[in-house]
Design a protein around this nucleic acid. Sequence first.
DNA 1: CCGAGCCTTGACGCCTCCTTGACGGACGCC
DNA 2: GGCGTCCGTCAAGGAGGCGTCAAGGCTCGG
Lengths: 228, 228
Amino acid sequence: MTRVLVVEDEPQIVRALVINLKARRYEVDAAGDAATALELAAARHPDVVVLDLGLPDMDGVEVIRGLRGWTRVPIIVLSARHSSDEKVEALDAGADDYVTKPFGMDELLARLRAAVRRAEPVAGGGEEEVVVETDGFLVDLAAKKASRAGRDVRLTPTEWHLLEVLVRNTGKLVSQKQLLQEVWGPSYGTETNYLRVYMAQLRRKLEADPSHPRHFITEPGMGYRFEK
Amino acid sequence: MTRVLVVEDEPQIVRALVINLKARRYEVDAAGDAATALELAAARHPDVVVLDLGLPDMDGVEVIRGLRGWTRVPIIVLSARHSSDEKVEALDAGADDYVTKPFGMDELLARLRAAVRRAEPVAGGGEEEVVVETDGFLVDLAAKKASRAGRDVRLTPTEWHLLEVLVRNTGKLVSQKQLLQEVWGPSYGTETNYLRVYMAQLRRKLEADPSHPRHFITEPGMGYRFEK
DNA sequence: CCGAGCCTTGACGCCTCCTTGACGGACGCC
DNA sequence: GGCGTCCGTCAAGGAGGCGTCAAGGCTCGG
């Protein structure tokens, strides 16, 4: 299902958007300010963001920059400002589209469909593997299920998130900073103790011999790597 | 250079667009009708299409469909029609953006930049040469993996950094000062002993005969050079 | 209101990596 | 032929990174 993050501080507009989006089978998260928006974006990985520029706590363009620091998720800007400069600034900061209020719901939804569509992976080539199997354990990212030696293993949300990033980059080194920012959010980049704790938990739950990991490999000073 | 295909039948608008685009170093093709547009698109493979819906010979939406049959090139629609239905139809047919006339040139150009930007290759799609192979060893800079004779070789962060600088300048001489400053920082320029130690380690880990290096070559008094 | 997970945070021991010094060989200059 | 310079090699020390454990606080559901 497509996940939409709505960032808007006017409750009526939020309500209208949420109702319309849910009716069309989108999964919707909503944030009323910039801080919550950035947090939710990091936690939920939306497929598209609808962003009002007039937020109470931060300039909307800063939100765009904050998102663009780590993700290419499509951003559709909503704004009451008609000025050309505002549009240019938002678009050049990394927005994908700019819709002025008042807006027609049909048009917004069409623009949203267009944004989601073009972000889709190319047919055929974009099929990503969601089930990963190693000699010791099995992970199904889509079903959020993991098992070792036939027995189901329970993972916490953070553990899943971390595992997901590693598995999506199977064989490639993922830097500590990238892991931290993708799992904990853009403002985290140095708290490597989080990584140490959660890597240990993943290993304890999935590796046959947690103290001699064969799949979750540490590259000292650089990051971690998942190997089948 | 970015190539733009302008599809528009009003000569003044064509002229304004062409002048503005060329001034910004875009390469511009122009078509006055749908047939020419489809032909030019096929022949020239533009990076983005600016498409007026009001063409003399064919409905603009048909042009969108015609293009979408074989390409995902970004399409920005220009139209005098403000109706919501028109926008929805064009966007759902495959357009990326919809700008109503009269339009501001700044805004159009910003939307064009946005369209081009997001069409840019994703990391991994825009093949930069990151895998280097010699007769004796193999280096993957993106995955941070190196192997010799089929066996993985572990390199430390500093070793990677040094290797990266050398590989990026394959065949070219890199001065000691440049290496020191790129790897150890701007304030290091004379500590050539660091280089000696780390070049030795790279050779020991990657060269078949470390004492007679064939790929990491010393240019006495000047610097080092990496050769495939 | 209580309890169960879950996330955060701190402490500690081990291990890796970077730095640094010493030594020997090759080469060129005097 | 002696000397100085530059480079390669080796080993030891210290600093910082990493794995591990456990306690505290938070949120959510009962």
